[in-house]
Design a protein around this nucleic acid. Structure first.
Lengths: 274, 274
DNA sequence: TTATTTATGATTGCGTTCTTTCATAAAATG
DNA sequence: CATTTTATGAAAGAACGCAATCATAAATAA
């Protein structure tokens, strides 16, 4: 029989969390835990695969691991040229005495690694990104604060209601944020909880700077984050031509200083910033 | 046909590494990559399961994720005999469905390491102790929550006003706490911020269990934490005689089950609990 | 309210994986 | 060298998972 939509979505969320926690679960086990038939479990799994939140295997399901959410340590090494370019442009935005938020994701980890080499001091860094916290806590002059929240080891990030609430303790001079995809409408992310948290951060921040490499262009994700009108700045290695074609407002195409040596390492053109 | 033993073992090693790299591989894929029949692949997989190097699923195999972070394996060994004894006594107190607080400090890290080996499931673990969070977040069935707070790298712990406030989100069935010293008056700690946070935790917890090895006996520290009257239970490897001499109330000397094999490993006598 | 939509679980047929058995050929063993 | 041991792949049948179909009942829309 039909069931209210919010119940279905809540169950799928529970399902995704179960798989995230256990890393792998066979279909039968999922049926037992959710109290649904195999047919429904399969349908839910198919929906989560569609949203790229899990990976299906014969007889079960894995938490997402290969293309979009490899575990943090695996992802670190990938796509470093583009991320380095973005980081180089972001670092001058960090001024002594300020309070900055670092979002989850490998792009922000790359920024943290670069920032560690030429830190502004003193600064306060607030993050839900454990690897970021760990490397920056070692640097003299940097105070590192973690949000509260549930720790998901595959992403090494803190999420959930408590994370969102602990954002309210802060006001940020600037928040460095990331997303899974950008289209003409704006920015998208794959998990509702991440979006919620990011929105909470944006409300507490004077400026919001989004860091997305070119692979995110014209890519969709299940949850809408923000329209371009609310994006303060975009740091990317995508060319103006590609941004134009993807429908990113031209106000966000404007250049900052180019770094020729870095450009040579990437097939994309220079970094842009409003 | 029969094949030399070292070839077989080398192939199994390759197989284990493949699975570790990819986290999951279906049997057919393994056959292709190793150039063997399904029968042989299955037999190899069974051998690796026997050695606890992988986990088998219907249609494939998963890496055994504890082995994916070798740094934790190294750290596992440095738990002293006293801390192990305390951990062994603490673990039965952790019941499925409960919410538990793990304090900062190496004693609680040792407890977390022991708990990981025989976890109750499902449980919620709340901590300000980053190493504890990291190792427990990998265990299926354990939900790990971090408090907010400033990260102090030397102690790998979260402290400060935000940490204290984020304790207020929780109520604990039981809190495992540590301290720097115990005297006839009660328990002491070295940092005011730690004491503040511990007091906040104790207010939110139904039971408070303190874990202190015998070296803490008759040791002072600058900040007073609690009198013995407010201590729910004490887990220690100190003998009743020494506790008596140090002025610890005899109500806290009472025995639980002894573990003879463990006693032999320590110069101190058995673990006590109220 | 009535009508429409749709989430669900049961069923059926098909494809996949698993276990067991067996013959074979090469390694081990003496 | 002769004998024993055993790693291998093939095959058969059982067990299992999957996609498609369908009736049902509850949610949604009118």
């Amino acid at each position: 029989m039909k069931v209210p939509l919010h119940i279905v979505l809540a169950r799928r969320d529970r399902l995704a969390k179960l798989i995230e926690q256990e890393r792998y679960l066979p279909v039968k086990e999922l049926c037992k835990r959710l109290g649904v038939s195999e047919a429904t479990a399969r349908r839910d799994l198919a929906a989560l695969v569609q949203d790229k939140r899990i990976t299906r295997t014969y007889g079960g399901a894995l938490s997402e691991f290969n293309d979009r959410f490899p575990s943090f340590r695996e992802r670190r090494s990938l796509g470093s040229a583009a991320k380095l370019k973005i980081a180089k442009q972001a670092i001058p935005m960090i001024q002594p005495g300020g309070t900055y938020f670092f979002d989850s994701g490998t792009t922000l980890f790359a920024l943290a690694e670069a920032f560690r080499e030429q830190p502004a001091s003193p600064v306060r860094i607030v993050t839900s990104n454990l690897p970021v916290a760990e490397i920056l806590a070692m640097v003299p002059g940097i105070q590192v604060f973690l949000l509260a929240g549930q720790l998901f080891h595959l992403q090494s990030t803190l999420l959930g209601e408590t994370a969102k609430r602990s954002v309210e303790f802060w006001t940020f001079d600037l928040a460095f944020l990331s997303a899974e995809g950008m289209t003409s409408e704006g920015l998208w992310n794959s998990q509702a909880e991440i979006v919620d948290q990011q929105k909470a951060v944006m409300r507490r921040s004077q400026r919001n700077v989004f860091c997305l490499d070119a692979t995110k262009l014209e890519r969709n994700a299940p949850h809408f984050l923000v329209p371009w009108s609310e994006v303060g700045a975009l740091l990317t290695d995508a060319s103006p031509a590609r941004l134009e074609k993807a429908g990113v407002p031209s106000a966000l195409h404007s250049f900052t200083a180019k770094d020729e040596s870095l450009e040579a390492q990437s097939d994309e053109m220079p970094v842009h910033i409003l």
